[in-house]
Amino acid sequence: MAETKLTAEEAQALRTVLCAVVVKRRTGELGIIHGAERFVSTHRILKQADRDALDGAARKLGLGSIREYAG
């Protein structure tokens, strides 16, 4: 796959979205934390390879790892 370049605005938009994303540790369910630590599901389950890819993308954007939710 060819290398993709992001504009500064695109990278900032992805940072904004990815900093809100969490993955349930046990099931791989993708969601966000809303309010007082309430998990809101996107009804998507990520396989480990997809979780690793998402984590890698977040690190490239300077966010560190995608947060995991234990609940």
Results as ranks from 00 to 15, higher is better:
residue 1 M to R: 10
residue 1 M to C: 11
residue 2 A to F: 06
residue 3 E to Y: 12
residue 3 E to N: 03
residue 3 E to A: 08
residue 4 T to C: 05
residue 6 L to V: 03
residue 7 T to F: 15
residue 7 T to M: 12
residue 7 T to N: 04
residue 7 T to E: 02
residue 9 E to M: 10
residue 11 A to V: 09
residue 11 A to I: 11
residue 12 Q to T: 09
residue 12 Q to N: 08
residue 13 A to F: 15
residue 13 A to I: 10
residue 13 A to N: 08
residue 13 A to E: 14
residue 14 L to K: 03
residue 16 T to H: 08
residue 16 T to Y: 06
residue 17 V to I: 12
residue 18 L to R: 08
residue 21 V to H: 02
residue 22 V to Y: 07
residue 22 V to P: 03
residue 22 V to W: 06
residue 22 V to R: 04
residue 23 V to F: 03
residue 24 K to L: 05
residue 24 K to W: 02
residue 25 R to C: 12
residue 25 R to N: 14
residue 26 R to S: 15
residue 27 T to N: 04
residue 27 T to S: 14
residue 27 T to V: 04
residue 28 G to H: 05
residue 28 G to E: 15
residue 30 L to I: 09
residue 32 I to S: 01
residue 32 I to E: 13
residue 35 G to N: 11
residue 35 G to P: 06
residue 37 E to R: 14
residue 38 R to I: 11
residue 39 F to H: 07
residue 40 V to Y: 04
residue 41 S to I: 12
residue 41 S to C: 06
residue 42 T to Q: 05
residue 43 H to F: 09
residue 44 R to Y: 02
residue 44 R to T: 11
residue 44 R to M: 09
residue 45 I to N: 03
residue 46 L to K: 00
residue 46 L to S: 04
residue 46 L to A: 05
residue 46 L to M: 11
residue 47 K to E: 13
residue 47 K to P: 01
residue 47 K to D: 10
residue 48 Q to F: 06
residue 48 Q to T: 11
residue 51 R to P: 01
residue 51 R to S: 04
residue 53 A to C: 07
residue 56 G to S: 12
residue 56 G to N: 11
residue 57 A to I: 05
residue 59 R to Q: 14
residue 59 R to E: 13
residue 59 R to K: 13
residue 62 G to P: 08
residue 62 G to E: 02
residue 62 G to Q: 03
residue 63 L to D: 00
residue 63 L to E: 00
residue 63 L to A: 05
residue 65 S to E: 11
residue 68 E to K: 00
residue 68 E to S: 10
residue 68 E to I: 04
residue 69 Y to I: 09
residue 69 Y to W: 12
residue 69 Y to E: 15
residue 70 A to F: 06
